[in-house]
């Protein structure tokens, strides 16, 4: 089913369409929440809360082009609320390497899957060491693939700031990876 048709059914309250919608975006919402909170259980709770909020405002879901930025904005707001409630930075090194980026894979050898999972975990940890703005720009631009204008609107910062910070944030992240021996 085409996405606009699915959205139409979701807005009308069709349960099957809602399930398809959840399955389509759950990994993205959970991934974003996990990168914000650095805690898998918190991220699961937040992702669930995000979908409940979306469900309560089904009529407000924008069209195809604006749907993902809208969901990302809701997720970000939920994560920031959560972090404010905790009133502390999320723990950085509290997860085992394979807790989140699991090793289930059908097309790779176990060694490759392990290396991939370790690599993802290291990148995730390096992300947590960046400043808040740099981390958010990496999350929204490089990971979620949003445009610069959308990021500027979500973060409520000038477009020029997003542009200049984008390169600096990537460079800083690469430097942190090199420092822990993950150059290539």
């Amino acid at each position: 089913m085409e996405f606009p048709q699915l959205l139409d059914l979701v807005r009308r309250g069709d349960e099957l369409a809602w399930e398809a919608f959840v399955r389509r975006f759950q990994s993205r919402v959970f991934g974003l929440a996990y990168h914000y909170t650095a805690h898998a259980e918190d991220a699961r709770d937040l992702a669930q809360e995000v979908f409940i909020r979306i469900y309560q405002h089904l009529a407000a879901i924008p069209g195809e082009a604006g749907c993902l930025p809208w969901i990302i904005r809701i997720t970000r707001n939920a994560c920031l609320d959560h972090l404010r409630r905790r009133k502390a930075r999320p723990p950085l090194w509290d997860l085992p390497a394979n807790e989140l980026f699991d090793l289930r894979s059908t097309d790779r050898s176990p060694e490759e899957a392990l290396l991939d999972a370790v690599r993802k975990t290291m990148v995730h940890r390096a992300l947590q060491e960046l400043s808040d703005l740099n981390r958010e720009i990496i999350l929204l631009k490089e990971i979620q693939g949003l445009g610069l204008e959308e990021i500027a609107a979500i973060l409520d910062v000038p477009l020029g700031t997003v542009k200049s910070r984008s390169h600096r944030a990537r460079l800083e992240l690469a430097q942190k990876l090199v420092a822990v021996g993950m150059g290539a």
Partner: peptide
């Protein structure tokens, strides 16, 4: 490292929340 981030970062966009997540949301 910068070049490898071009493939590593987009791969972080979607993370499987677990088998029971969808049912919990529904």
């Amino acid at each position: 490292a910068l070049a490898s981030l071009q493939t590593d970062l987009p791969a972080l966009a979607q993370v499987d929340p677990g088998p029971w997540f969808t049912q919990a949301v529904l």
